[in-house]
């Protein structure tokens, strides 16, 4: 029988918010709507979605920070509503893009303190902290006050805090957000190795970065507006649109992209303006390659010029665009 690290059934979470400050009437925002997710033990599971899709809400519920409005969620077999303490013995979490930690303490003091809050035996804690400081290339900063660290160094220390307790399940909420290429690479490699070292470990990773999801995840769920739109391996997800063609065009910047949306045979379309280069990147998912000619002929009509054309194999991003109807960024 398959053992699930995470199992949700019709999980919903609503928030009541005031639309206008000072107004008494509140409206309901459905952050999660009937989310059904099963994550097997030993899986590196990815959640892909734009801002406000419901990824962090789901993680907050699973790590016992937030109660669901309805439905059920089980973590390592325990209900999040009733068995928080059992869950907390087995999990940990790392959020990206924040500067957590007691700035007056040193890196080592911060980590040591958290190791004690997790009940780690002293010798094990000391050994693991030293080892992970080494892996994360932070040994020379172990006696530095946390407030003196750079964003990347703080995030590395945050990663150590999360992983040093050797949780059965770790939630990584955009762990590489705002990090440079090298730091991101180091963290991705570490996650990969951590999973390999002990195959029963489970990771739930949310990310904006398609490459990260594609590189790391065994399975990926695409989530938007609180709804899980698809859930499968990256390979199978790509197969969903493999009969379709993906076309990338870079053209001289145009103001109105609407004519492209209405071309028959364009299944999905996203764009991004780059004011610095004066160009617009267009991305199409096409039902048939024959439509390429129609698109190309539309460009001069819009008063633009083609700079480059690229036909690509479908990526996870294409799957995302096909399912969600837009790219990961708000302007797309």
């Amino acid at each position: 029988m398959t053992k699930y690290a995470v199992e949700t059934s019709d999980l919903c979470r609503d928030f009541k918010v005031r639309q206008v400050k000072g107004e008494s009437k509140k409206s309901t925002v459905h952050a999660l709507e009937n989310a059904n997710i099963q994550i097997k033990e030993g899986e590196l599971f990815g959640l892909l979605g734009p801002n406000g899709a419901g990824k962090t809400t789901l993680i907050k519920i699973l790590c016992t920070l937030l109660l669901p409005s309805s439905g059920t969620a089980k973590v390592m077999g325990h209900d999040v509503n009733t068995h928080c303490q059992d869950i907390r013995q087995k999990i940990n979490m790392v959020s990206g893009g924040e500067t957590s930690g007691y700035g007056l303490l040193t890196v080592r003091e911060n980590l040591w303190m958290f190791s004690q809050f997790y009940g780690m035996p002293s010798k094990l804690a000391k050994r693991r902290i030293d080892n992970m400081l080494e892996i994360m290339d932070l040994s020379d900063k172990k006696d530095a006050k946390v407030r003196t660290l750079s964003t990347g160094q703080r995030q590395k220390a945050n990663m150590i805090r999360g992983f040093m307790t050797d949780p059965d399940l770790i939630f990584l909420d955009e762990p590489t957000l705002g990090l440079d290429v090298n730091a991101s690479r180091l963290i991705r490699d570490f996650i990969h190795k951590w999973m390999k070292d002990k195959p029963s470990r489970t990771v739930l990773l949310t990310t904006h970065y398609m490459v990260e999801a594609e590189e790391l995840c065994d399975r990926v769920a695409i989530i938007d507006n609180g709804k899980v739109l698809a859930c499968d391996t990256p390979h199978n997800l790509k197969k969903l649109i493999s009969k379709e063609s993906a076309l990338k065009l870079q053209i001289k910047q145009i103001a109105d992209v609407k004519p492209f949306e209405s071309i028959p045979g364009v299944r999905n379309f996203s764009f991004k303006h780059d004011p610095t280069t004066g160009t617009t990147d267009l991305k199409f998912i096409l039902e048939d390659e024959a439509i390429v000619a129609d698109i190309i002929s539309e460009i001069p009509k819009c008063g633009s010029k083609i700079i480059s054309v690229e036909k690509t194999e479908p990526t996870l991003e294409d799957v995302f665009v096909a399912l969600v109807g837009r790219g990961l960024h708000g302007d797309e």
């Binding site: 790590c63 016992t64 920070l65 303490q85 907390r88 013995q89 999990i91 940990n92 979490m93 959020s95 924040e98 500067t99 957590s100 930690g101 007691y102 700035g103 958290f114 809050f117 997790y118 009940g119 805090r161």
Partner: peptide
């Protein structure tokens, strides 16, 4: 310090 959530979810 933004540490409350990490303390809260600890055992």
């Amino acid at each position: 310090y933004r540490t409350l959530k990490y303390l809260y979810i600890s055992p």
